[in-house]
């Protein structure tokens, strides 16, 4: 399978690549065997754009997020591949101090449950100062000033939120604080792991608006990991659809949503109820999301739920191939799907 490696081109001719993921494979070791959570993933994260990685449980999207931070921990193990950041080399080779100074100052991360990512016993402002200290930030006042600015940008009263303990903030405020803590160190890349999952719809839309406006202003390379197509559609420039540890489709968000080419992407878009339009068009997707322990070793990983299944799909895993400029799909039956 190692021979599958192929370089992914970009939609944009002059787009620069911030992060290049090649042949990334992560194996989870359990008592009953080894299972690939990521299987030869090839991916380019475009500089200054928002790339969304979307998938259900078992798709490997969170593992991919961890691997980008070189944070895959036991029982998972990176067995193959590389994550090359421009100017920083292969992140998977970083250790100790070099790794600490990569996480934070280079890649700022916002986790799904920001309330759990904060120390419940310290005021938020102090945690920001601690963050600066652990990264040898010279000027703590400048850091706080930056945090205050960001808080105002996000419609929060800085004097109130920075002196509060995490439990005194609402879920939406904590999530915004999480974004502030990722941004104060001025990273080059922002990694958002399910940033709106635990939030209400209203709070979600506000947080997405903030992500959009911050991006408009700073042009940070942003990686957004989510299971929600709506979130993807709202903010991202590029979309990467994952299923069972593999990238099944990738391209610009607009083109991919308008004309999805992988049966899974099509099925998932059709399975989302919409606010307007004919409800009878919605079709459920049969079967269950992939169980890591039951992903077939050969052939297409999606075939058991696929309505386009052909004999070939049982035997050979489809490669990610270009169907259009910058639009890639891993499906044998791609040609049949168009009509």
């Amino acid at each position: 399978m190692g021979a599958d490696l192929k370089v992914i081109g970009n939609a944009d001719q002059d787009a620069q690549v911030e992060c290049q993921i090649r042949d990334l494979t992560v194996i989870f070791t359990t008592d009953s065997g080894d299972f690939p959570a990521l299987n030869h993933v090839n991916l380019d994260i475009i500089k200054n754009k928002i790339t969304a990685i979307v998938g259900e449980s078992g798709s490997g999207k969170s593992t991919l997020g961890l691997a980008i931070l070189n944070g895959v921990a036991f029982p998972g193990k990176v067995t193959e591949g590389s994550v090359e950041f421009a100017e920083h080399g292969n992140v998977l080779k970083l250790r100790g101090k070099a790794l600490r100074h990569f996480r934070g100052p280079v890649v700022g991360t916002v986790f799904q449950a920001s309330q759990n990512a904060m120390n419940p016993l310290a005021r938020v402002g102090k945690q920001i100062l601690d963050l600066g200290r652990s990264h040898h930030y010279k000027d703590p006042r400048k850091l706080l000033h930056e945090a205050e600015n960001l808080a105002r940008r996000m419609a929060m009263d800085p004097s109130r939120v920075l002196t509060a303990y995490p439990h005194q903030l609402s879920g939406g405020m904590r999530q915004r604080m999480g974004i502030i803590m990722a941004l104060v160190l001025k990273p080059k890349v922002l990694l958002l792991d399910e940033p709106t999952t635990a939030l209400d719809l209203l709070t979600q839309s506000a947080v997405l608006e903030i992500i959009r406006s911050i991006h408009r202003e700073r042009h940070l390379t942003t990686i957004l990991i989510t299971h929600d197509m709506g979130v993807v559609a709202e903010v991202s420039d590029y979309i990467v659809v994952m299923y069972a540890g593999r990238v099944v489709e990738q391209g610009s968000t607009h083109d991919t949503l308008r004309d999805p080419r992988h049966p899974y992407t099509r099925a998932i878009l059709r399975a989302i109820p919409r606010l307007t339009g004919d409800l009878n068009r919605a079709r459920p997707l049969e079967g269950s999301p992939p169980d890591l322990t039951q992903i077939p070793a050969t052939g297409c990983v999606f075939r058991s739920r696929c309505s386009y299944r052909a004999p070939q799909c049982d035997l050979v895993a489809p490669l990610l191939e270009s169907v259009d400029t910058g639009h890639f799909v891993a499906c044998h039956q791609e040609g049949l799907i168009r009509d």
Binding site: A206, M229, E234, H254, D255, L257, T276
Partner: peptide
């Protein structure tokens, strides 16, 4: 208004407003 719009498939309503 807070419901995400699937760009490419949908266009936002003219009065959509997301308050911060």
């Amino acid at each position: 208004s807070a419901m995400p719009v699937l760009r490419g498939l949908e266009e936002a309503g003219p009065d959509r407003y997301i308050p911060l």
